[in-house]
Nucleic acid binder design. Structure first.
Lengths: 153, 153
DNA sequence: ATAAGTACCTGTACGATACAGCTATCTGAG
DNA sequence: CTCAGATAGCTGTATCGTACAGGTACTTAT
């Protein structure tokens, strides 16, 4: 309350994030239903994370993606059905199952990623490189802040 | 491909937006379930829009929020059940129903909005005012770009 | 005055998610 | 070594947000 200007900045951020989520979801719905169809939101993040961080257990994925284990189990089952990941017993823990992306999975993920990147390229066509990288950096910091807040456990 | 640096910036933006949506949803789920409970995502945006743009018809809301009419109908029913909006026959169109926020609805919305804003204030506590307002501005531009892309109809 | 369009509602379906409970396995204390 | 408790993953069930299809009441244009 000391600084009304900053207060309203927070309000704007809140508004814009809410808006972004609405539009992001609408976009995902629209484009997702259209054709790709096979990579729903969670499936995409799962594949991305596997590609990024390597094969890992269901629980590791769940923890990382802030999802319930059962959710990941089902997503992973769907991905396996579609041949995009494989399950192998964890050699170091008989309870565990290691999830690895298949080449097809990686390729599918990369295709979606490329399409999305292209979309952003389109939308941000008239942005300066500085603005783009500033946005990327600030979003990164925002997410970091979110993570820090949600998981000081 | 002319500029590898910029290409990767787009990738980062794509990544961060995806992450933001995941965390945003998780946060909404967590905080929403906690206590307020009554303002799910759509309900919140509906109330916000009503507060912003005044009482209006279901279809106007649906169009504006990029939602199916039936979805808005149900959300509105829930809001009415909770006493947060009222339905009145549209005097100028016997088919229509005008949705107005009740004082309680406005208050609830404002409370959630304030809570969210506070949350952002918390998370961004160590950000400089410049970074905050840059983030707000860039998010605004990003949303504008999204809107422009989704609705050149 | 009647056909076409529109606004809203309802039935139904689906997808993503969570929570609770189950089984198999692991780990540590005795 | 044994067994109690923790953990990994799966399955059953429930909920929520959403869409599409169809119905009814009203409006508009001809």
């Amino acid at each position: 309350m000391s600084d009304d200007h900053d207060e309203s900045t927070l309000g704007r951020i809140e508004t814009e994030v809410a808006l972004l989520m609405r539009f992001g979801e609408a976009t995902r719905r629209a484009t997702g239903t259209a054709e790709h169809r096979v990579l729903d939101r969670a499936a995409y993040v799962i594949l991305r994370h596997l590609a990024d961080a390597g094969p890992q257990n269901v629980s590791a994925l769940a923890a990382r993606l802030n999802l319930d284990g059962s959710t990941v189990t089902r997503q992973v089952s769907a991905l396996q059905r579609d041949g995009l990941i494989t399950r192998t017993p964890d050699p170091s823990d008989g309870r565990g199952t290691v999830i690895s992306p298949t080449p097809a999975g990686l390729q599918r993920m990369a295709a979606v990623q490329a399409a999305r990147t292209r979309l952003y390229g389109d939308m941000l066509a008239d942005w300066s490189p500085e603005d783009r990288s500033t946005l990327a950096a600030l979003l990164g910091r925002l997410n970091q802040a979110l993570i820090n807040r949600n998981r000081p456990r």
